[in-house]
């Protein structure tokens, strides 16, 4: 366990999303809940606090901002957010992972609001670079936001894309690293460290910032400031997060990557979320 205090409260939106994520996973008996929980505040700020431009009733609106969840296994948070915003009916969550269901364990483009298929790690930043390059060639104002996992940054393709975006000065591209410090089986520090991500991105020609990834105010401040900033560089936020954030016994644990609460743990998990008892 990491010796660290997160000073922020959980907002109503993030609490609701965590509850939806957990309900959906328990109903389907599947899902990467801790990976979904670690980026909830990032999703809330992007989708619910006015950072991203979109129209839930017209998901293909040409000048929308583009969002890619490159760590596709964290999709339950995306599904919960999109359903709350009206991209698709809430009922679809009840059928997550079902026979022929629209919502699978990793997102694809059949889902309204999903721009590209993700789930195999290391694809999102390159696709996002393509979006941003197209915007630059067209002189369009849309922005592209890509959320990556820190363990995902083991993939070489992430650094190919980072180098390309830095060189091409794709300043409408924003990468947010959900730095929860855990891969699927262990802490990254124990098998392939991804320390100094901010320095690494900076050396690839990016503007960088670091913040508490559960502090919605700070995330908002950084993302809002970037919208009016005149930099010619892409922007990377290394967001320090906790895998499983919101449920005490799931937090910062390598046991829960795909494990779901059962029996008494279920009530305890919802209690944690409801009462910020993490």
């Amino acid at each position: 366990m990491e010796d660290r205090q997160i000073p922020t409260k959980i907002s109503n939106e993030s609490r609701e999303i965590r509850k939806l994520v957990l309900e959906t996973a328990l109903n389907a008996k599947k899902g990467h809940v801790p990976s979904a929980f670690s980026w909830v505040e990032i999703a809330v700020v992007l989708y619910f606090k006015g950072i991203m431009k979109f129209d839930a009733k017209n998901p293909q609106m040409e000048d929308r901002d583009r969002f890619i969840l490159s760590k596709g296994h964290g999709c339950l948070t995306l599904y919960a957010a999109l359903s709350k915003l009206g991209f698709f009916p809430r009922d679809l969550l009840n059928d997550f992972g079902g026979k022929g269901a629209v919502l699978a364990g990793h997102p694809d483009t059949e889902i309204p609001g999903v721009e590209t298929c993700t789930g195999s790690l290391g694809h999102g930043l390159g696709v996002g670079a393509g979006f941003a390059l197209s915007a630059k060639l067209k002189n369009m104002k849309w922005r592209t936001y890509v959320v990556l996992g820190d363990a995902e940054c083991h993939e070489g393709s992430v650094w190919e894309a980072a180098m390309f975006a830095g060189h091409q000065k794709l300043n409408s591209l924003v990468a947010i690293i959900d730095k929860n410090k855990l891969g699927a089986t262990d802490f990254t520090e124990n098998y392939a460290s991804v320390k100094n991500l901010a320095e690494r991105f900076n050396s690839f020609g990016w503007d960088v910032a670091e913040c508490d990834g559960h502090d919605e105010c700070k995330l908002f401040e950084l993302l809002f400031a970037h919208k009016s900033k005149k930099s010619d560089k892409p922007f990377c936020i290394v967001a320090d997060t906790i895998k499983g954030k919101g449920v005490s016994f799931m937090q910062n644990s390598k046991e829960w990557h795909t494990k779901l609460p059962k029996d008494n743990e279920i009530a305890e998990a919802f209690d944690c979320i409801e009462n910020n008892n993490d």
């Binding site: 696709v127 979006f131 390059l133 197209s134 067209k138 393709s157 190919e160």
Partner: peptide, 16 residues
Amino acid sequence: TEQNMMSTAAGLAMTG
């Protein structure tokens, strides 16, 4: 950067 080339191509293509 062949991997990035294909992903970037996809992103470009998705914008028409």
